[in-house]
Amino acid sequence: MEILITGGCGFIGTNLVNRLLSQPEVERIRTLDNYVTGLRRSDKNERVLEIAGDLRNYEDVLHATEGVDAVVHLGALPSVPRSIKDPRSTNAVNIDGTLNVLEAARANEVKHVSVASSSSVYGANPTLPKIESLATLPLSPYAVTKLATEAYTNAYSTSYGLKTIAFRFFNVFGPLQRADHVYAAVIPKFLAALKNREPLIIFGDGEQSRDFTSIHAVTDALTKSALRSVTSETPVNLAFGTRTSLNGVVSLLQELHDRPIEVQYVDPRAGDVKHSQASSERLTSLLPDVMQPSFVEALKEVYDWYMTA
């Protein structure tokens, strides 16, 4: 079996490559990346083929997709704040790029496509936990592009018979997640600040909560859905119903850290959702054996990784 991962040199993509390499039935893995947020692999493996290309270029995507059995579409321009600053670029990469992936998969008769959506599509809907049938009320251009990503994917299933599944990611974290850019996620930002003996910056009062999800759960679900050709007519939450405030994360980090942690609270950011928590019923019905590491264990793992990296 041969699998293409778009955005395969990013945080989730790199971890997914490592997970797939442990599967003997996966003979070859291709990654398609333009290296804007991703990094080239330093450890070369004959089973991994890196392809430099851009999702906005259909020919790049068509070439990368030729001959593969499955596509995992992770490539995107991430970040709510980035999308507010530059909505056109986010739209071009995330929506036009997704359409190119789906068209290339259809043209090359790919057997299965999974795509990454986001919990941000729920937006202003206050209901908890987030059930996939809830109304979506995006608060940012990024969230709009992710809603379009999953809608296009489901439409290609009903219109063309393409086997697909769209996962809504919830605040994924773990080893290899970068903190060295302005749009980094909150946990790597916290850990980088701790390592550099700097204060942790929190936008708002810190009581906003997230369903933080271990990278190992995400790569396990993506791997099993690709190998088993798991499909869904509707999007699927990829999280497990936990909810931890940012202040709660700080408290847990303080238990791991040997120095007092300083926190600075600043004004809230536009487009940020106050609370997020998934219903995992649909996920566990489709993938009953999906890995579910505890948040405390996963946080300790990534803390140890950052402190020694």
Rank of each mutant, 00 (worst) to 15 (best):
L20N: 01
L256R: 00
S294N: 02
E207G: 08
P260C: 07
A116Y: 11
P293C: 10
V61M: 04
A221H: 03
E66L: 12
P293H: 13
D86F: 14
I202L: 14
V71L: 08
R228V: 06
Q23N: 03
M307D: 01
N247Y: 12
S251H: 09
N237V: 12
N94M: 03
R178D: 12
K300W: 10
A151G: 09
Y303K: 03
S117T: 00
L39N: 10
L299E: 12
N15P: 14
H112Y: 13
L21K: 01
I261Q: 03
S119E: 15
R40V: 10
K44A: 14
D272V: 12
V290G: 02
V218Y: 07
S119K: 04
I84G: 01
E2G: 01
L137V: 13
M291N: 07
L39S: 13
D33Y: 12
N91G: 04
K300N: 08
L162H: 02
G7F: 11
S232T: 07
V302S: 00
E297H: 11
S83K: 00
E297V: 11
I131K: 14
A124R: 07
A52F: 15
Q277E: 14
G271F: 13
P199N: 03
E50R: 04
V273L: 14
L252M: 15
G67L: 14
A221Y: 05
K146F: 13
G241L: 11
A116V: 12
G8V: 06
E2F: 04
P235A: 02
G204D: 09
F11D: 04
S209E: 13
D96I: 03
R47A: 15
F169L: 15
N57W: 05
S209I: 10
T65R: 02
Q264H: 12
G241C: 08
S118F: 10
G75E: 08
S83F: 10
T158H: 13
T164H: 15
R88T: 12
P268F: 08
S117E: 00
T234R: 11
V61F: 03
A135P: 07
N237W: 11
T145Q: 07
F11Q: 02
A179H: 02
P78A: 02
D220Q: 04
M307P: 05
A105G: 04
L222V: 08
T136H: 03
Y122C: 10
A155H: 08
G241E: 06
A52K: 13
S245Q: 13
N45D: 15
T223G: 01
K44M: 14
T242M: 10
G8R: 08
A107L: 11
F11W: 09
R259V: 13
A239Y: 02
A166T: 04
Q177T: 07
Q277D: 09
D69H: 08
K189H: 12
L283N: 00
R228D: 06
P288C: 02
V36C: 06
S133W: 07
N45Y: 15
E150N: 02
V48H: 01
P235F: 08
A107C: 10
T149E: 11
A143Y: 12
L162K: 03
A105R: 03
K189P: 09
R197H: 13
K146H: 07
A143G: 03
H63P: 05
